[in-house]
């Protein structure tokens, strides 16, 4: 199988902006043109081969190795192919992404999948703040696609998201689902505080009890029908969601009535 492999040779002194490292850009380029692609380091531009060892050419299967904590914008706006990272990544991973897949064997910085429209991002470690969020001033965050974070996620996860799914394995920090307009956030290990603040629509599902704002109202206990279908989708991604009424029930809270909004927060209550 042909693929392009990039190995970081040296950790940059200041952040390196690598929006060119996407399957879309690399898939049509011969080896020497890939090596000559531009990276931005502060005010200076460099060639990719000044920072990376490059193997392969013309492939939308891209593999990265190294400590990429200071490398920003990997997979920016990508529409196809697969980007696998062995190591930590910096900010804006898969931001504005439209399709394809990103798999990070490590942690990621802030703004993972910000304003993304499609595709799949899987971060096996922790993620920073603003996962799937809207950039400053924008009224809509993530519009579709899926983000899986195995570890914890930072502040404002899913801020202003409209559609799509975010699943977080670890604890979600404050303001998960802030001003959410639609879509789903699944919190397998619960969250800190202010979950769903100012949400208008959308669903937050938590496997652990949540400390909710006083502007959320308890509605009822039930096992919503759509969850069976949703759980099946998640299952394909390796996430299991309890749906059996025998095992437990979901408490439904609605809010945030300060908006007033029609969002739903479902909290799992095992029997």
């Amino acid at each position: 199988m042909s693929q392009v492999t990039l190995r970081l040779k040296q950790t940059p002194d200041v952040p390196l902006e690598a929006e060119n490292i996407t399957p879309d850009v690399l898939s049509d380029l011969p080896h020497d043109e890939i090596r000559a692609l531009k990276l931005q380091l502060g005010k200076r531009t460099f060639r990719i081969d000044e920072f990376f060892e490059v193997e392969g050419e013309r492939s939308d299967q891209v593999e990265l190795h190294g400590d990429l904590k200071r490398v920003k914008w990997l997979g920016r706006g990508m529409t196809r192919g697969r980007l696998v990272v062995h190591g930590d990544t910096g900010m804006h991973l898969g931001a504005l992404m439209k399709g394809g897949e990103i798999d990070v064997h490590g942690s990621a910085g802030d703004w993972v999948g910000a304003e993304m429209k499609g595709g799949l991002i899987h971060v096996r470690g922790d993620a920073g703040g603003q996962v799937g969020a809207a950039y400053r001033g924008a009224t809509v965050g993530m519009k579709n696609g899926t983000i899986l974070i195995d570890g914890c996620a930072g502040l404002e996860t899913g801020m202003r998201m409209k559609k799509g799914t975010i699943v977080v394995g670890g604890v979600v920090k404050d303001f998960g689902g802030l001003q959410m307009k639609g879509g789903n956030i699944v919190m397998l290990s619960g969250a800190e505080i202010r979950t769903g603040a100012w949400m208008v629509r959308g669903t937050i599902i938590s496997m652990l009890p949540l400390k909710l704002l006083p502007t959320f109202r308890y509605s009822c206990d039930y096992n919503p029908g759509f969850l069976t279908l949703f759980a099946r989708q998640l299952n394909r991604l390796g996430v299991s969601l309890p749906v059996s009424a025998a095992a437990g029930v979901y408490q439904l809270f609605s809010g945030d009535c300060s908006v007033p909004g029609k969002g739903e927060i479902l909290v799992w209550q095992p029997h």
Binding site: L212, F216, R217, C257
Partner: peptide, 16 residues
């Protein structure tokens, strides 16, 4: 956030 709700005469969870 409670004040915002009260301004719009929305109910809030008193215990909290």
């Amino acid at each position: 956030t409670i004040l915002r709700a009260l301004v719009k005469e929305q109910p809030v969870d008193e215990s909290q």
